[in-house]
Simulated assay, not measured.
Amino acid sequence: MKKNLLLFLLFFSISIVAQNKKVATNGTIFFEASVPFFEAVEAKNNKVYSAINTKNGSIYFEVYISLFQFERSLMQDHFNTNYMESHKFPKAYFKGVIENFSINDLSTSPNQYYIKGRISIHGVSKNIRVTASVFKTVQNAIVIQSKFALNTDDFKIEIPSLVSNKISKTVNVTLYTNFH
């Protein structure tokens, strides 16, 4: 009897924890590091993995660097080989929390939140704090949208002097994810 009760409580507690977690595998990250009067430096990745705990607002993102798609394949090759060294650093991560998050406060109108945590790119980790719009869809999915800037120097991403005037050290990032 005790064994059955213990198994029931274990199963019940696992299902409660699972209800607090939502996962998305098709989030999008777009970045641009263009300089006026030169060719656009921009790419998009539609295979961003993310997870949110709706009870405490903790959030996680993971992205494969090599899945960023550029308009020109040569630019994509240089990005992976020369700048991001995706063979050595295949993923970027973010682990953090949405400050003052409550699932009960979400509506179909976007609310502004701060998301703080630790981002790891190119083998370097850094604490960041960015703003994000968070809202629920009519289908009860949670959507997170954010725009923020990162600096290549912060992550030891070297831009060769030959092209340094054509690529911005400030990288503008746009994030979109939809937790169903």
Rank of each mutant, 00 (worst) to 15 (best):
V173F: 10
S168K: 02
L162V: 15
L10N: 05
F135G: 06
V124I: 15
S66E: 15
N111H: 09
S50N: 00
I98M: 01
H122M: 08
D77P: 03
I52Y: 01
I103G: 00
K21H: 12
S168N: 08
M84Y: 09
G27V: 04
F37Q: 14
N20I: 05
I65L: 09
S102C: 04
K44C: 10
N100P: 02
M1L: 11
P36R: 06
F11W: 07
I119N: 07
N53L: 00
S146M: 07
K116V: 01
G27F: 00
E158T: 15
L5F: 09
S164P: 00
E62V: 11
T108A: 04
K22V: 15
L5Y: 14
N26Q: 13
P36W: 09
F179W: 09
S102L: 01
G117T: 02
S73R: 12
L5I: 15
V17T: 07
V143M: 06
S168T: 05
I59P: 11
L9R: 00
V171Y: 03
S107F: 03
I128D: 06
A18L: 14
V48N: 04
N56Y: 04
I121S: 05
I29W: 09
F70V: 01
A33V: 04
K95G: 08
V143P: 03
F11G: 10
S66D: 14
T25G: 12
V134G: 08
Q139G: 12
K22S: 08
T174H: 00
Y64K: 14
H87W: 09
I159K: 02
F30D: 12
F38S: 10
F68Q: 05
G117Y: 11
F94Q: 02
I157V: 13
F79Q: 00
T108L: 04
F8P: 00
N140K: 13
G27S: 09
F68S: 00
K95W: 03
N165Q: 12
S73Q: 12
F101S: 02
T54W: 04
M75E: 04
T174R: 01
I157C: 07
S86K: 09
F37I: 14
S13N: 07
T54G: 03
T174D: 08
E99W: 02
A92L: 04
K88F: 06
A43M: 07
F135L: 14
K3R: 13
V17C: 11
F11D: 06
Q76M: 10
D153S: 15
N172T: 08
I14K: 03
Q145M: 14
I167H: 09
T174W: 01
